[in-house]
Structure formats: structure tokens, C-alpha cells
Design a protein around this nucleic acid. Structure first.
Lengths: 118, 118
DNA sequence: CTGGCATGCCTTGACAGTCTAGGTATCGGT
DNA sequence: ACCGATACCTAGACTGTCAAGGCATGCCAG
């Protein structure tokens, strides 16, 4: 923790956000980060030290594949795209997020049933 | 892993769930775990190896305090309760969860604006 | 009365994913 | 000539979770 109080990402959510971003079309690291930040309404900030390792994980696992290309800004960049496998994974992970976040929300807001544990 | 594929907790959410549980009244480790599992609709399973360290963290930080007592089942147990500080922390963490989970959901569901980054 | 199950607490070690904090290189504009 | 934005990469520390064990005791079925 220390001093820099940026809210840390909910561990495990970066991957699914990356997959989702790529499901809208191939993109490269830098752009993926900017896109996620934008879509989150600036609530999330994607650190490169987390993003690149995540990308490598996904590629190693066969969920994405990469190819070098050139960006709008005329710069060399590695473009990642979803593989069929990755599309499956995305679906999976979206469902999992839905399930888990709902579960957590329930715990935080639900009133306990009368017959609770003591 | 093997067969029992319990989804891992979203890292960082355990604490806020514990605080929230205690906000409904003092409780002990075992009961806290059962309560969270129940409220989550069995979607979450709280591992003791995560729960107890979390409880110690919270106590060390002054968010909860503990006292030995006896349960309904007539067993010795350490009862934790929220301190004023802990109530503040709970409020904070609930807001943070709200903010982050909303942000993630946006990233997963929102359609990108036309002028996106390339 | 005894064996097993549920209750209840605790700890160690491995591990995964994130962050900090550096580094490199190039393009375009001032 | 420089500087900011773009773009990639990596090492090391850290944090929280998990798996897997251990211990003790109350209660009930057989």
C-alpha cells in the first residue's frame, strides 16, 4: 500500500477486460489500456506492469495472438486479436464476473435471514 | 485444482464482506464464513486460510476488536466486533466496491464511443 | 462408552497477479 | 534541438489467497 493511493484493480478482472476489449477488434497494448480507462470512466487505471504480463499470459494460453503492425500515430506496435479459444474464454469469464460480483453485492446489501448462524 | 473448481475470490473483497457481516453484530470466524457463504447464495466459499489472516489484519489495523466467548453450540470462540474506525472503513470500502465493480461492468458491457483509440 | 462429525481456531508454504520503477526507441511538433 | 506522447519491455517486491495440514472439544448415534 504505502503512499500512492490509486485503488488497486480487483485481481483477476484485468484479463476479462482485455479479452472484452479485443472482442471489439484487434488492438495493441497501449491502446487497450487507454480504451479500458476510457470505458471505465477514468475509474480504472491500467498499469503497463500488469498489462503486458497479462497479454503474455493470454497469448501463451492461446486466447489471443499477436502480430506487429503500425498504428494511426505511425508507430510500430504489436496488435493482439482474439482466437476462437479466446472467445470462449471471454464468454466464460464474463459469466464468472457476473456471478461473483452479484454474489459479493448480495453479501454487502442483503439482509440476513432470521435463522442465521451464531 | 483437479475436480473441485471453486472460483477464486476477487482479491480484496473478503475484507469488506467481513466488515459488512460484523456490521450486523459481533460474530466469530466460523460463523462469519458460514454467513457470507449463505448470503452469497453458496456462490462463494470462504477459506479459513484466507479468513483468519484477514481478521488479524483488520484487528491490527484497529477496524475490529475481539473477545473470547461462547457460541450457541457451547463452544469457545473469538468474537469480533466493529470499532468506530471499522465502521468508517466499511463505508469507504463499500463505496470503493461500488465504484470499481461498476467500472468493470461498464468496460464489459458498454459500447465504445465512435472516436476510439487505434 | 466410544467413535465420528461438526464446530472452532491456527499456521505454514506456495503461488498468482499487481504495482513500482526503472529502461529503450521513435514520431511529431515547437 | 528538444520534449511530450506514443509504444514496448522487465525485474523485484509485495499482497492476498489457497491448499493442506494440525489441534481441541462438544454432541449424538450406535
Amino acid at each position: 500500500m504505502a503512499s500512492g493511493d490509486q485503488p488497486e484493480l480487483l485481481q483477476g478482472t484485468l484479463e476479462v477486460m482485455v479479452l472484452r476489449t479485443l472482442s471489439r477488434g484487434a488492438s495493441h497494448g497501449y491502446a487497450i489500456a487507454r480504451t479500458i480507462e476510457l470505458l471505465s470512466g477514468k475509474a480504472l487505471s491500467i498499469e503497463e506492469g500488469s498489462l503486458y504480463p497479462a497479454l503474455y499470459r493470454l497469448e501463451k494460453r492461446g486466447d489471443v495472438e499477436s502480430e506487429w503492425g503500425t498504428t494511426d500515430a505511425n508507430r510500430r506496435a504489436k496488435f493482439y486479436s482474439l482466437t476462437p479459444r479466446g472467445k470462449g474464454r471471454l464468454k466464460e469469464q464474463m459469466a464468472l464476473w457476473e456471478k461473483l460480483s452479484t454474489a459479493v453485492s448480495h453479501v454487502l446489501t442483503r439482509e440476513p435471514t432470521p435463522g442465521s448462524v451464531t
